[in-house]
Structure formats: C-alpha cells, structure tokens
Design a protein around this nucleic acid. Structure first.
Lengths: 267, 267
DNA sequence: TCCCTTTGGTTCATTATTCAAACCGATGTT
DNA sequence: AACATCGGTTTGAATAATGAACCAAAGGGA
C-alpha cells in the first residue's frame, strides 16, 4: 500500500447514495487519521479528483474523472477488452466463446472467438440474439433489467424442439439461471449446440451483456458444466472489470457455492 | 506538489492520440526519474487507474475511471454545476445569465438566473434557441461542429429587423465571433435585448453549449462589452472545467488579446 | 450562560519514502 | 560483435509523509 493507492481508494467511498463526504466522516470510512486524510484530500483537490462544496466544506467527486473516462472509452473500446478473455475462455474449454452487449431490449454480438482444438466446431453467427432461445438471453433476463422478461415473452420464437416458447418454460429457465448464476441452453437455438452464459456488468453496476461458451452437445456434456461454468464466470469477472464494472458480491458468492472457485490462478 | 498530485498528473499524458505509453517515454514526458515513475505506475496499476498491456508492457488508462465518471455524472449533474457560475455572472453584470446545451443541431436551455439589481430585467424563456438569432447560437456555430452552419442556414427565421437571415449576414456574425472569441447579438432575437455569449466545452474537448448574459440595450451598451465579455468568458472557464472540459488554449489567448484577463481573482 | 462535543484545519518530531545514478537482462540495429 | 534502448531493480543520502496532540469555530443541551 503506497500513498498513491491509499489516497485513490478514498475515491471509492463516493457513490450514488453518498455523493458528499466531510473530513471527519472520511477518516472514519477510510481508517486514516485526520491529518493524513486532510492532506490526501487537498492533494486530490489540487488535481481535480475531488472538489469541495464551498458552503458545507464537504468533498465530492471532481470533474477530471469525466475527461479520463472519455480517454479510456476512446482508447480502449469495449470490443477490444473482450478479445483476450474470450480467447482464454475458448482455449480453456476448447469451444467457441462469444460476448454480447445489451442495447435496450436487444442483445447484440460484440465479438466471438474459437479455438483450433477440434476440426468441427460451432460457428456463432447471430447478430441479434433471441432472448428466450439463448443462454446469453436467459442470463440477461435473470440478472438484467426488469423490462427484459415482458419483452422476451412478447417476441418468443421457436427455433428447435426444446426452445422455451411458453411463459412457464421461460420462467423455469430464468429461475435456473437465478439459482445457479449462469444460464445453460441445451439445443434451444440450434440442434446439437449446448451453451453456458454468465452476465456482464458495466460501470453503472447493471447488466451490460453476457459472455458465453457454445459447443457441440457431444463434447459440452453436463459433467463438464462445472469446469465450463468456472471458465465463463472467470471471463465475466475479467470483462466486467475492464468495463469499469463489478460482478455483485451476491452473484460471486452464488458462483462460488455452485461451481467452486473460478480457477483462482491469475488476475 | 505532493506525491499524489505528481502521480495523478501522469494520467494527463494519456490522450486519444497517445493511448499507450511505455515507462521510458513516461519518464521523458513527466520529467521524473525512472524508479519513481515505475513505482507511481505500479501503484496506479494496483488501484486500476492504469493497466498494462501484457505484450508491449506499455501502460494505458485503467477501467476504474469509468466507474468514477459514472459517480460524478450521477451525483453532480451538469445542471447543478452551472448555477453558481451563472449567479456570479448575473450578479457581476447585473443582468440575466443563462446556459444552454448543444443536443445534435439544437441548442436547449439548461438554466437561467437573474439578479434583483434592476426592477426591469430580461426574462429568457426560450427552450429551443434559434442558431441564427441568438448570441449563444452564433458562438456555437463559430466554435462548434461543422454541421451547425448548414443546419442554421436551412432553418433561418426572422425575429426582429436585425436578425441575420441571409447567408452573408450569418457568416458575418460568425466571423465576428471567431475573431473576438465571443458572440454579440444586438436585438437579433428580441427588440431591446442585447446579449454576449461564450462557448462551453465538455470532456470530449468539443463545444457542448454556451453561456450568455442578456440585458436591456439601454444598460448593455457597447462600452460595457469588455467587462461583460470578461465575465462571460470567466463563467465559460468555470463551467467547462466542471464538465471535465477545457477551453482550448487558442481560444483563451483570443479572449486575453481581445478583452484582457478575465478577472483573474479566484478559481 | 456555561459546558461539552464535533467540525475543519494545523503543528512538529519521528519515520518512511523518494531520488538519482548506476546496474541487469532482454531485444533489437548497425 | 558492438551499440542502443527497452522495462525493471538496487543503493544510501535527501526528502517527504505521518499521526498524536492542538486550535478555533460552530452548534446543542441544560
């Protein structure tokens, strides 16, 4: 822990529910003493990371972060940040991995990557993912905005004999995802393809999309589910972080309980 | 200059044109020695302010700034940040001040504030500012996106006898603004009202709106223009900063040359 | 009114970090 | 083979951060 990291973790105290924080409260929240906290805050203020409410003398998030976020968004677009985690995921499981982004009530492909491990592999060539028929769709309904379920119920299409096309079947699939933390779709979009998906979170703290692995039923068998789920949740952690988001603790706990530690090897 | 401010100014080196910077280059850019720069960067990395490209080992803006910007945007909305500078502006000149935001090719009122100095004062009650007939509109055409001029030429309406309604007249007004750094509208929207406007810049570095002062012709006489221009440009500096933006150096120079120092008293 | 608490802000001897220059090993270039 | 440059590490003298104690001011009760 250097001075820099200590000072910057002060900024984590700000949130939508706690926009202004006074000196004394900062001391309590951060655990540092008053003099140190004061010096940190005035330093942060001098570079625009916090600003002081002149009347209440409380501190709030400064304007410079807007500029920095703009640079981040411009120089490290979301699409680029998913490539590496997707490659790792595809490589680990030996199947095709893809990431999608939620745009309103639609789920759009962001990127997909496969491995060369098998000569036959799944090609994911969907631009607009049906919410009811894909693991990515189900997991977004389960953990995303409330509006998704009614929207999905309205536009349900049948793709295979096992596509959930009734409200009951859809609720069942969503409830499974809510219980397990990931969605599993067994040939609901295409015969012979089984896939597992986990939700992605962005800087707003909400679901921003999904990451999934899709493979042939012969290889993506249920006994490999734990391994695949761990890999998919690992990818979700990585991608969500690079989007400035964080997988909610409750969901991380759910994953751990159901699938064990997501291969806690490296970052 | 504390450690914190020194470390954080490292982040200013990143830009849209320079998204990744290596250690040696950072030393050159920041002027610090290698060991210090390295420690600063690893500290910044540990809290997510920068991240390292694993192959090139160069540093780039980290994802945490996305979250911080979200908090800033949520807790300190733009509308709130203009109130205080507007009040100061209105108080200093004794007329009505207002701020507008550019949304596509339209200029929308964000807030307006007046003083009690005079019993008669201008009430600005426009929701959609005509680009050709207001000082705010002219200054946005002059310093904002290229698309504004054609859009303005298309929708030119006449409000008073002096409203610029020909391409020639509009270009003349815009050229004046480009030369002076502010736009002056003498009864072009409403008889008896004269106003001066300066552009506002946001985190993207582009014009995001305008701030203006509007008063009765009898009081807002040309001999008070320098005073009013200084006050308006001062307000622009404050508001732009609070939006994570920065008034371009070229424009600041222009202001200084034409109107002198914008009352360089306090921040 | 007085007393007590809490607020933001400051001081100074002690302690930890920073600095600059030299050094490593790896990766090109000439 | 010689050279330059890269990211990263080490060194002890120089410099900065630290935190308990301290201020002044602003409430809040009684």
């Amino acid at each position: 822990m250097t001075v820099i990291s200590k000072a910057l973790t002060l900024l984590d105290q700000f949130s939508e529910t706690q926009p202004e924080i006074g000196l004394s409260e900062f001391c309590r929240l951060s655990g540092h003493d008053k003099a140190t906290t004061y010096r940190y805050l005035t330093s942060l203020e001098s570079v625009g990371f916090v600003e002081k409410n002149p009347t209440s003398k409380a501190y709030r998030m400064g304007p410079i972060v807007l500029r920095l976020a703009q640079v981040r968004e411009q120089t490290v677009p979301r699409k680029n940040t998913v490539i590496e985690p997707l490659d790792q995921l595809a490589e680990k499981i030996g199947e095709t991995a893809h990431a999608t982004v939620l745009s309103g009530d639609r789920l759009i492909t962001l990127a997909n990557r496969d491995t060369r491990r098998y000569s036959t592999r799944v090609v994911v060539d969907i631009s607009d993912f049906p919410l009811n028929a894909t693991a990515s769709g189900i997991v977004c309904i389960a953990f995303g905005p409330e509006t998704l379920m009614p929207s999905a119920l309205e536009t349900m299409r049948r793709f295979t004999s096992t596509t959930p096309t009734t409200a009951k079947a859809l609720h069942q699939a969503v409830d499974f995802a809510k219980a397990k933390g990931v969605a599993i779709a067994d040939q609901t979009y295409e015969e012979g393809v089984r896939s597992i998906a986990a939700p992605l979170f962005d800087q707003s703290g909400h679901v921003a999309g999904a990451v999934a692995i899709a493979g042939l039923v012969g290889r993506m068998t249920p006994d490999r589910d734990p391994e695949a789920a761990r890999a998919v949740t690992m990818a979700s952690l990585q991608i969500s972080e690079s989007w400035g988001g964080k997988v909610p603790d409750a969901l991380q706990d759910l994953w751990k309980r159901n699938w064990g530690n997501p291969s806690s090897s490296h970052i």
